[in-house]
Design a binder for these strands. Structure first.
Length: 560
RNA sequence: CGGGGCGUAGCGCAGCCUGGUUAGCGCGUCCGGCUGGGGGCCGGGAGGUCGUGAGUUCGAAUCUCACCGCCCCGACCA
């Protein structure tokens, strides 16, 4: 059956919605793929759903290929399950009650539910298991944004593995890692797999798949030589060398009246800002004060500091600072205080200017190890211009979309939910799990971010809504329309998905819509070509455009 | 949750500052005609609780307050 565009609901728009910023947001709306219902809540129109389903099918095939078993778990979830694991208090959870007042929630992931079922895996003989489903996830996001980039309701493929032990989990994890690589490659995405932060309640090992994009919420740091990739939150970079200041045998007090910023300090002392240090007092969740110390031209990385401290923390208040240091912010330093100091690795070697813990005074020639005894760690946020920690090459920064996240959670859920099995030695052990998530909608958005031009989307063939777009430029001429039907039929019968634009519209409009929609192949049947007994064919990506005999259309479309 | 911005026809906007007939424009849409290889042209028509509610006023799209919705930045992102 040929799909006649004149009968379809493909509401293309000449202009993008005024409030759209992200390219994928604009083009998916303009191309008639999606529409917004409420903030972060979207409908996939027929065209959009076709693409979504294409992505779903790619994911499905790769999950099946590693032994994944597809199932479907419910959205409506009894709250007890999440109470048991302690995740009931996560603010992003949607809660609701039934008519009798029983509490339910709308989850954004299914660890609890799948672990509930995994309790039936009572013997090591049943392990390992790999289960997955595609289901609607709801998430009370504080701030949805960017069209499909961050939403409050979406479909996610989440897979879960259960193993006897960590070694088994490692095998399952590697299988998923491979499946994800194949999935994103098939979708035509440029991406990088990077080690990721698991979060406080996450697990041990975690990996993000980041797709560089014009808009996104992550920053991907990669080395020009391709041997390093990381999320900015945990990326390591080698900072530019500081212009070394004059060496001193002991710290020397210097008056710096009114100086509270690094820029002003460096300027007044005539020093490189990289030859100074910056003190960031923070308070841990248990109330302990800790001094973070980074080079003057660096920023403290909150995510790294979180990892080092092993607990949440907040900046110290002005009152706390004055009480502990006897001076205000801008004059703080690590010398002569009885407070734990975590110093960035960049401060290991050499001497730096530091605050003197006396308002309006600094110390020259402060040296770690000699003048204070810090714990060293990598706590600086890398900046562009840093060198690669592996090879010294230049680091590149790109905004990116997180399209997939896989992680090991071990017994994090099986313990509270008492999902145990009997091992070969007769002892009862908790199941060791991992979870693996990918959002087809986000993949769609990421692909559009990477594959478009000024006129619209340029879909990779693997996930295009239709393989071929046949445009009939008939202008009411029956013989042209009839020829277009013949061409479309040949392609259709060969098994290609054909979108047939039979509408009584002007050529310009048809071209514009076809560009927006972005099918990989286009066949144009019009009076001009018909005179030659031919049709015009072209690829959406601009790599080919020619006139071929009508009889050769199929050959062209299948060989290209 | 903090900061900024916006809300007038399906979409994009003007009008608001300085209150005063039937609230405009482009696109789209419907009817008729011309046209027919990159959003063409002519004629005619339909389409509006000016986000909601209160207030000020003889009179409110316009001024005031509250609320709601939407976008961007930040916080957050298990």
């Amino acid at each position: 059956m040929i799909v006649r565009q004149s009968t379809l609901f493909i509401p293309t728009l000449r202009e993008a919605p005024a409030d759209a910023e992200a390219v994928s947001h604009k083009l998916l709306v303009r191309g008639g793929y999606i529409r917004q219902v409420s903030t972060g809540v979207w409908t996939f129109l027929p065209l959009g759903w076709r693409v979504h389903q294409k992505v779903v099918q790619v994911i499905r095939e790769e999950q099946d290929a590693i032994g994944g078993q597809e199932m479907l778990m419910p959205v409506l979830t009894p709250s007890e399950l999440w109470e048991a694991t302690g995740r009931i208090s996560i603010p992003e959870l949607f809660h609701l009650e039934d008519r009798t007042g029983r509490r339910f929630l709308l989850p954004f992931t299914h660890e609890e539910t799948v672990t509930f079922h995994a309790r039936e895996l009572q013997s090591y003989r049943r392990l390992p298991q790999m289960l997955y489903h595609f289901s609607v996830k709801d998430r009370d996001e504080p701030r949805p944004r960017g069209g499909l980039l961050r939403v409050r309701e979406f479909i996610m493929k989440d897979a879960y593995s259960f193993d006897r032990d960590e070694a088994g989990l490692d095998v399952s994890f590697r299988k998923q890692e491979e499946a994800y690589h194949r999935t994103f490659q098939r979708c035509g995405l440029e991406y990088a797999a990077v080690a990721a932060e698991s979060g406080v309640m996450g697990g041990k090992e975690s990996m993000d798949f980041l797709a560089p994009s014009g808009s996104g919420e992550n920053t991907l740091v990669t080395c020009e030589n391709g041997d390093y990739a990381a999320d900015l939150e945990i990326a390591r970079g080698i900072p530019r060398p500081a212009v070394p200041p004059e060496r001193r045998d002991t710290p020397e007090k210097v008056e710096t009246p009114g100086v509270t910023t690094i820029e002003a300090l460096a300027e007044q002392l005539g020093l490189d800002s990289a030859a100074t240090s910056k003190a960031m007092p923070v308070v841990k969740a248990d109330g302990t004060l800790v001094l973070g110390l980074v080079r003057g031209d660096d920023r403290l990385s909150e995510s790294k500091m979180l990892g080092v401290l092993g607990s949440d923390f907040r900046p110290a208040t002005d009152d706390e600072i004055r009480a502990a240091f006897g001076a205000g912010g801008g004059s703080l330093g690590p010398v002569g205080i009885d407070i734990e100091v975590v110093a960035d690795d960049a401060l290991r070697e050499g001497q730096f200017v530091a605050g003197a813990n006396r308002d309006g005074w600094h110390l020259l020639g402060v040296e770690a190890g000699r003048d204070y005894q810090p714990t060293f760690a990598d706590i600086r946020e890398p900046v562009e211009g840093d060198r690669c920690p592996e090879c010294g090459g230049a680091l590149r920064f790109q905004t990116a979309i997180e399209v997939g996240h896989i992680f090991k959670f071990g017994d994090r859920y099986s313990k509270p939910l008492e999902a145990t099995f009997l091992d070969e030695d007769g002892t009862e052990k908790p199941l060791i799990g991992g979870s693996y998530g990918v959002g087809p909608g986000r993949v769609m958005a990421a692909v559009v971010e990477q594959h478009h031009d000024d006129n619209g989307i340029v879909w990779p063939a693997s996930i295009a809504p239709y393989d071929v777009h046949v445009l009939a430029l008939h202008g009411g001429a029956e013989e042209v329309l009839a020829e277009a039907v013949r061409v479309a039929t040949v392609l259709d019968e060969a098994g290609l998905a054909v979108l047939f634009d039979d509408r009584d519209e002007r050529p310009g409009e048809k071209f514009a819509d076809a560009d927006l929609i972005g099918c990989p192949f286009r066949v144009i049947v019009g009076k001009k070509s018909l005179e030659d007994g031919a049709v015009d064919v072209r690829k959406r990506d601009g790599s080919a455009e020619e006139r071929v005999a009508a009889a050769d259309v199929l050959k062209w479309a299948t060989q290209s």
